[in-house]
């Protein structure tokens, strides 16, 4: 029996996880269940009911953003995987390029695009779009109200997290064995059938990765909702931030909210993975 030295190599990872992941989560749990005095309490959780609106709003917007990312990202990944290597390199670089710019800066720049006097509205005004609309519909609009809406928040989420949807899906599709596609065609599958029965099921792992990597940050974002939502769309991230940086410093409530959010997200992920696995042995679509 080979006495493997491999477990030793895992030590840095274990240490890292222990310090930066496990310990903070334990701290959050402890804070969530205690009061300022230090005693055990469930009080923080009983208040959760008042925040249902924010919970549903956060999850709803995150879900919408994830679906939009999927709808945009999947076809894009598919198309890129079919092209030649030069196109793929250029395409990949273009997709990744915005990531080199700081997250906050990117979001700020969307503000200046969507503002009342922002780039888009100025452009529309310059080409006479508003005059046209006013003439046709008899309205009197001077600009499109884009900033400070839920749409703007979703846009910010999609813009920031789309590469995280594209990358995993693309890398799965591009590695698909071409002979599998030929075999499917040989057995009588038309292009749509090849996609439905071979490409799509085999790309599910990529989709699952992408969805996770978009959904989780979207649920907990606060910068996007503050900057693009104009502070009118309070999300979970804002709510938790309020407990720490708001008028009343209450880390216990903040931790409790964070804990509930974490649990819901984990449950969602579990359901999704379970659904994904079941697909493998199931009768096809």
């Amino acid at each position: 029996m080979k006495k493997s030295k491999r477990p030793l190599l895992a030590i840095p990872y274990v240490v890292w996880m222990a310090i930066f992941v496990v310990a903070p989560i334990i701290m959050v749990v402890i804070y969530a269940f205690s009061t300022a005095g230090g005693g055990f309490t469930l009080e923080n959780f009983t208040r959760m009911g008042t925040y249902t609106v924010i919970f549903t709003r956060s999850f709803r917007l995150a879900l919408i953003a994830t679906v939009v990312c999927l709808l945009i990202g999947y076809p894009l990944s598919y198309m890129m995987a079919k092209e030649g290597p030069r196109f793929q390199r250029v395409g990949m670089m273009l997709i990744m390029l915005p990531m080199w710019v700081n997250f906050l800066l990117r979001t700020y720049s969307w503000m200046s695009i969507l503002e009342k006097n922002g780039l888009l509205n100025q452009f529309f005004s310059a080409i006479g779009l508003f005059d046209l609309i006013n003439a046709v519909f008899g309205t009197n609009i001077q600009y499109f109200h884009m900033i400070g809406t839920q749409g703007a928040v979703v846009l910010g989420m999609v813009y920031n997290y789309l590469p995280f949807m594209i990358l995993p899906i693309y890398s799965v599709i591009v590695k698909l064995d071409n002979s599998l596609l030929e075999a499917a065609r040989d057995l009588g599958a038309s292009s749509t059938a090849v996609f439905r029965k071979v490409i799509f099921p085999l790309s599910l792992p990529g989709i699952l990765s992408g969805v996770t990597m978009v959904f989780v940050p979207s649920v907990s974002t606060f910068a996007i909702s503050r900057l693009l939502g104009g502070g009118t769309q309070m999300l979970l991230g804002d709510l938790i931030e309020q407990q720490f940086l708001g008028g009343a410093y209450n880390p216990h409530l903040g931790s409790a909210i964070a804990l509930v959010m974490m649990i819901i997200v984990v449950v969602c992920m579990w359901i999704m993975n379970h659904f994904g696995e079941g697909e493998e042995q199931a009768v096809m679509l």
């Binding site: 925040y51 804002d238 709510l239 309020q242 008028g247 209450n250």
Partner: peptide
């Protein structure tokens, strides 16, 4: 009072 302010403020966001 600080807690009241905070709660009201969050209510605004609901």
């Amino acid at each position: 009072t600080r807690a009241l302010y905070n709660d009201l403020w969050i209510e605004l966001g609901l």
